[in-house]
Design a protein around this nucleic acid. Sequence first.
DNA 1: CTTGAGATGCCCT
DNA 2: GGGCATCTCAAGA
Length: 210
Amino acid sequence: MKLRRHFYADPTLEVARGLIGKVLVRATGRTIMAGRIVETEAYVGQDDLACHASKGRTRRTEIMFGPPGHAYVYLVYGMYSCLNVVTEEPGYPAAVLIRAIEPLDGTEQMRRNRGGGVQDTGIGSGPGKLCQAMSVDRRLNAVSLSGSRLWIEDRGLEPGTILRSPRIGVDYAGPFRDKLWRFFVRENPHVSKHRLNGAGIARSGKSRES
DNA sequence: CTTGAGATGCCCT
DNA sequence: GGGCATCTCAAGA
């Protein structure tokens, strides 16, 4: 069943951990594509120097200041889209980046969207890859995850052992660089990178902040 | 197997 | 104008 708004309203670290094992679903006019979420990252508030909202409230970050349960999609490096889900209450800018999925439904469509010739583990093993596979780009920025184009559902799948590590590609973020705000499934081949700089087991979502 | 460079456009100073 | 929450390909060990 589709996750409801209150799921996303929780503290961002809990949402990031809770989304592991849930299923991201994309419906276009012609197909349904779905994948199990195996890797996420939390971006938490204006103080978090890795969070785009640390630059303040701008046209780009506006969506993160809005209500939870909406998509924040932006373009990185001029060519790749990244999909986030907005968390917490309006006025507090935070989101969870979906970094990797394991294909479940519409696998062949997703493979074609990636250009073909890729193994299953090459379909959604990265934030840019999964957006390409699922036809997610900035046209989906700000859409509601309660809508009919993009949502996340709980199919009762076991998440597996969840590990946590520093976030990828945020070396510029000073004291926030080493926060263990990345969550991923242990030994899952669809995770983008298995480098574990100070990684550890993720206990409950509220266990520990740093 | 690992490393490094280039592609490319939007955002904000 | 600088930098970026990435990916691919080609070259080297």
